[in-house]
Computed example of a mutant assay.
Amino acid sequence: MSRRTHNRHRIAVICRAATGLPHLTCLRWATEGLIDRYQPVPDADLPGQRAFEARLVLSLVDALRHEQVEGALLGFTASEPSREGLTLTLHPAMADRVLAAALPRRDMLYGGLRGVPGLRLTGSPGRWWLRGLLDGARVRLRHPDPFWRPVLPQGAPDLVHVWRQSPRHPHGSELPAHRPLRHGQDWLLSRALRRPRLVNGAGAAHGWANTYAHGSRGITIEWCCAMPASDMARLLVRSGLTAEAEGLPPTKRPQRENWSAYGLLELGEAVLTVRQGHCAERATASLRASS
């Protein structure tokens, strides 16, 4: 095997581990020059697409915390990323929860808009899309059941589902909520969404992990027994999560000595924190055994 062929296979292995795509697909991408060792998972080319994907992540990390099934932290099990768009495979037990978290709604009790401003679900069984009315972006949803029909959230006393009120045009309440994210956050969170197999590794032990957004800088993923934080940080960096991006200053080289208990993965001003904590399951089991 030539050195060039060996390098392509190595890139394909990283791509497959991050996305869940077949090895031959990733190998073809490497051969065609669509991916390389610096970026083994394709980025979205258009700023609007990256921003839409980043907003989707932010809407899911808080809504689905501690509600994951079989380690599907954001509700997805695999991805097919391209420069033009993204296809995500839904975990069948979390599909409806993903839509309930992402579809925009006004919270009359606490105020403000929840979900992704301008997001609408369109399509039919086998061809479902999340479309962005405000930026022209789209994410295709794939479900293991080709005849799957989503069960959409119904009305609630304190919620106004703006996607029902205005299915084809942006609702007035969505326009002020669609303020720009930070440039680095768009890149970082879009990349995280395109690497579901790696992100899901945090929930490998117990099927769940704690995920939440912190301020306007990024997100945190914390778990207990799945793997050391240093391993998770290393895999994410190797997958190109913090690779240089257009319009951002060069990223500082990660300080691996800080990866023992947690890792701060930075891109521009955005941060993805991966953290290993104490095992709640083990503590619960000990209490039961002693009672």
Rank of each mutant, 00 (worst) to 15 (best):
A156T: 10
A54N: 03
P176S: 01
T87W: 13
Q39I: 05
L64I: 10
A93P: 05
S59Y: 05
V151A: 11
A54I: 01
Q49E: 11
P146V: 07
L109E: 15
R138K: 07
H91V: 07
G111F: 08
P146F: 02
P92M: 11
R106M: 15
P167D: 01
V151Y: 00
L74N: 04
A102M: 13
V151R: 14
L64G: 05
W128P: 04
R97L: 12
R55N: 05
G123Y: 00
G115P: 05
R164G: 09
L60T: 04
H66S: 12
V162Q: 01
F76V: 03
P157N: 08
R83H: 13
R83N: 12
P176Y: 08
P117R: 03
P81F: 13
L119R: 07
F76E: 09
S124A: 15
L175V: 15
G132A: 04
V160D: 12
V116N: 10
G48P: 09
Q154E: 07
P125F: 01
R55Q: 02
A177N: 06
R127K: 10
G85E: 14
P47K: 05
V160G: 00
L119H: 06
R114A: 03
R55C: 00
L159M: 12
R83Q: 15
Y110W: 13
R114V: 11
P42Y: 06
L46G: 05
P167G: 06
R97Q: 14
R138I: 00
R131F: 01
Q49H: 09
D158S: 13
P153T: 11
A72R: 13
R97K: 14
V69P: 06
A63C: 09
A51N: 08
G136V: 02
R168G: 14
L60N: 02
V69M: 00
R120N: 12
T87N: 05
L109D: 15
G112M: 04
R120D: 00
P157V: 05
E70Y: 05
G48N: 01
T87S: 15
H161F: 07
G118T: 01
A44K: 02
R138A: 10
L119M: 12
G172Q: 13
A100K: 10
A54W: 00
V57A: 05
V57C: 04
E80K: 10
G48H: 09
S173F: 13
S79M: 12
P176N: 08
M108R: 12
G85W: 11
S79P: 11
F76Y: 06
P144Q: 01
Q39G: 02
A137F: 00
L60G: 05
E84T: 15
P92G: 14
A102R: 09
Y110D: 11
H143C: 09
R142A: 15
R131L: 03
R142G: 08
R55E: 02
R131I: 06
L90Y: 06
L113S: 08
L130M: 08
A137C: 08
G85C: 04
L99F: 12
G75Q: 04
L90S: 02
L86E: 02
P92N: 13
V116T: 09
S124E: 15
V139W: 03
H171A: 14
W148C: 10
R120K: 09
